[in-house]
Simulated scan of single mutants.
Amino acid sequence: MNGTAWGERDVLADDPNFARSFCRGQARLGRAGNRRAALAACGVATVLSSLLWMLGAPDGALAVAVTVGAIWLAWRCSAGNSSRPAR
Rank of each mutant, 00 (worst) to 15 (best):
I71R: 02
N2A: 15
P58T: 06
A27Y: 07
G7P: 10
A79E: 14
R35Q: 08
A45T: 09
V11W: 07
T46N: 01
R36V: 15
G7L: 04
G80N: 12
M1I: 07
N81V: 08
T67E: 00
A41T: 06
A79W: 09
R9F: 04
T46Q: 07
W75C: 05
A63N: 03
R36I: 13
A5W: 10
S50T: 14
G69I: 01
A41Y: 08
R31C: 01
C23M: 08
N17T: 11
L52G: 00
R28K: 10
S78V: 11
A61F: 00
N81W: 07
R76F: 07
G56C: 05
L55E: 05
R35H: 10
R28S: 11
R84Y: 08
V68S: 06
R35N: 09
W53R: 12
M54E: 06
Q26E: 14
C23E: 12
D14H: 11
D15I: 08
F22K: 02
A19T: 06
L12N: 11
A57I: 02
G30R: 09
A45M: 12
R84S: 10
D59H: 10
T4L: 12
V68P: 00
A61L: 04
V68L: 09
T4Y: 13
R31S: 12
G7C: 03
R20E: 14
G30K: 03
V11N: 03
W6Y: 10
C42V: 14
W75E: 09
A32Q: 09
A65E: 00
M54W: 11
A41H: 14
A27L: 07
V66Q: 03
N2L: 14
N34V: 06
I71D: 06
A38G: 01
C42A: 15
D15E: 09
P58E: 06
N17I: 05
M1N: 09
L51G: 14
A57N: 15
A40T: 12
G56D: 02
D15F: 04
E8K: 07
A32M: 08
A41R: 11
L12C: 02
G56E: 01
I71L: 14
V44Q: 10
A57M: 07
A74Q: 06
F22M: 10
A32R: 13
G33W: 05
A40E: 13
V44S: 10
M1Y: 07
N34L: 14
A65M: 02
V66P: 00
A19C: 03
L52F: 12
M54L: 15
A70Q: 05
G30T: 00
L52I: 04
G33T: 09
C42R: 13
M1L: 12
W6R: 08
A45S: 15
G43F: 05
A70I: 07
R84V: 12
A63I: 04
L62N: 07
W72M: 08
T67Q: 03
T4G: 02
S50G: 15
P58F: 04
G80W: 09
R28Q: 11
I71P: 01
R31H: 08
V47D: 01
F18L: 05
V64S: 03
S82F: 01
R76V: 13
C42P: 00
M1T: 11
L51P: 00
S49V: 03
A38C: 01
A38P: 00
A41V: 11
R35C: 02
P85Y: 03
R87K: 07
G3F: 05
A41S: 13
A13S: 14
A63L: 13
A37T: 13
L62D: 00
G33F: 14
G33Y: 07
P16S: 10
A61I: 00
R35K: 12
G80R: 11
